[in-house]
Design a protein around this nucleic acid. Structure first.
Length: 292
DNA sequence: AGCTATAGGTTATCC
DNA sequence: GGATAACCTATAGCT
């Protein structure tokens, strides 16, 4: 690839590249011993090195500046301003003070869809392993041990047995069915991008293995629905412990899922998804012993 | 070293 | 409507 560089002047509290990328929204990025972060989006390679005042970015895309600005939604969202507003919520204030600069990235929708289809009941390390193995075997090489995520055509050639051998388990048939579902219904990522939130979720949840939570992940991480709040086990815990005591004794049914989402919207408004990510990171990475 | 519980859930089935 | 088990398996956290 021909590298195109761009020096982005930004503070770590407006964008902490490491915390953002390894906060559980992306699964195929790595960091080397020098602290350089490398990953793939679509057919582009991204390389990032952060210093206190800047991020040195390098991509295989001719317009690295535009690419990076779009990827981190820098023009769209002023997270420091939002965080300031949200400091009236004690749990948020504590999370932000501990780890500022976590943003929502705007991911390649195709990979994002399949990635989160794999995410059911799996720890991040396993999700990464599944996706990397799949890309290595069926994706197009685009750099030193870097592979584009398999296209829909490439996915149609993968068998369930192969996926199971990569460690997909019960997720294996879902991947195949999803690829066929998209092709059979002529659903493009561009078409999904044009849908309003509720229609997007309605469409995505027709895919076997994609419930509300995974649909919300895709809506938030790939399609710019900043208000989408994926309620996983950690966010559910936060909602019932801090925001909605009335949920303390109930289980996570579809109805209660929505009540948890409502609790986030009441406090964080139109960018509740961003607040969710910051709280999620705090909850998911905290030491088991520190706070109950 | 061997064991257990859990991991950013979803769905079929039962009440 | 809501509760329960089953689906796979890598791995962290125990003994």
């Amino acid at each position: 690839m021909t590298p195109h560089t761009y020096k982005l002047h930004i503070s770590t509290s407006a964008l902490d590249a490491h915390a953002t990328i390894f906060s559980g929204q992306l699964f195929r990025f790595t960091q080397d011993h020098k602290g350089i972060i490398v990953g793939v989006q679509g057919r582009n390679v991204i390389q990032l090195q952060q210093t206190p005042a800047a991020i040195h970015a390098q991509t295989s895309n001719p317009n690295t500046k535009f690419f990076i600005n779009d990827f981190f939604a820098l023009e769209t969202v002023d997270i420091e301003l939002l965080a300031k507003d949200w400091h009236s919520v004690p749990l948020f204030a504590a999370s932000w003070e501990n780890q500022p600069g976590i943003r929502i990235t705007k991911q390649d929708p195709h990979e994002c869809l399949f990635a989160f289809l794999c995410a059911s009941a799996a720890p991040i390390s396993r999700i990464s392993q599944m996706l990397n193995t799949l890309a290595r075997h069926h994706g197009t090489p685009i750099g030193e041990s870097l592979y584009a995520f398999p296209t829909i055509e490439q996915l149609l050639d993968v068998t369930e047995a192969e996926l199971r051998s990569y460690g997909f388990g019960f997720r294996a048939p879902r991947i195949i069915a999803a690829a066929h579902f998209l092709v059979a219904n002529d659903i493009s990522m561009d078409a999904l991008a044009g849908l309003p939130y509720s229609e997007l979720v309605a469409t995505l949840t027709k895919i076997d293995g994609c419930g509300r939570k995974i649909a919300d992940c895709i809506a938030l991480f790939a399609f710019g629905h900043h208000h989408a709040v994926p309620v996983d086990t950690h966010i559910w815990k936060i909602a019932r412990n801090h925001f909605a005591p009335n949920l303390a004794d109930v289980s996570l049914t579809p109805k209660n899922y929505q009540l948890a989402v409502d609790a986030f919207h009441d406090r964080f408004g139109d960018y509740a998804g961003w607040a969710q990510q910051i709280l999620f990171y705090q909850q998911a990475t905290r030491k088991p012993k520190s706070t109950p």
